[in-house]
Amino acid sequence: MEKEYIITIFSENKVGLLNQVTTIFTCRNINIESVTASESAISGIHRYTIVVHTDQEKIEKVVKQIEKKVDVLKAYVYTLDQVVQQEIAMYRVRRSASIEHIVRKFNVRVLEVGEDYMVLEKTGHASETRELFENLKPHGLLQFVRSGVVSLPKSDAEREDLHHYLSLHDPQYGNY
C-alpha cells in the first residue's frame, strides 16, 4: 500500500551528492514530494529530509541503496506517526482590511508590511499551509512559497544509532 514516508539522510557535504541520492528515486520511478538539505547538529555532516509517496517494500530497498553511497553515513525511514514534522510557507498578499481576520484566525505571522502588500508566514503541516493558501486566494494572493518538510523522530533510536556509528567509524568523533 502506498503512503507517505520521510527519509532522513546523514552525509558528507560533497558536491553532487544530492543528485546521486535523487537518482536512486529516479531509477525506481518514485516522485520526490519534497526535499530539504542543510548542515546537521554535527559539524561537517549534512542532513537531508526527503518526503516520498511509495510502498514499504520499495522504500526499504531505496534506503539501503542510499546508505550504500560512499559519502552517506546513515539513512533512516519513518512513517508520519513516527516523527514530528513541520514546514514553513510564505505568502505575499495585497494589503486589505479583509486580511486581518484571516491573520487572526490562522495564527499567521506578519513578516513585512509594504505600501500595498504584506508578507505573511505560516508554519505547520502541508494541509494547514494549503488551507491558508485557499483562504487567501480570494483576497489578492500575489505569491506563495512552501519550504520542504523538516522533521525530528520521536524516539531516541536515530540519535543513538548515529552516535554509535560515528564512535565506531570516525576516530575524531567527539573532538568536533
Binding site: S11, V70, V72, L73, H169, D170, P171, Y173
Partner: peptide
C-alpha cells in the same frame, strides 16, 4: 585505511 561514511567490512 578508513573513510567514516563508508563501511568496507561490516561487523
Amino acid at each position: 585505511e578508513n573513510i567514516r561514511s563508508y563501511v568496507s567490512r561490516p561487523e
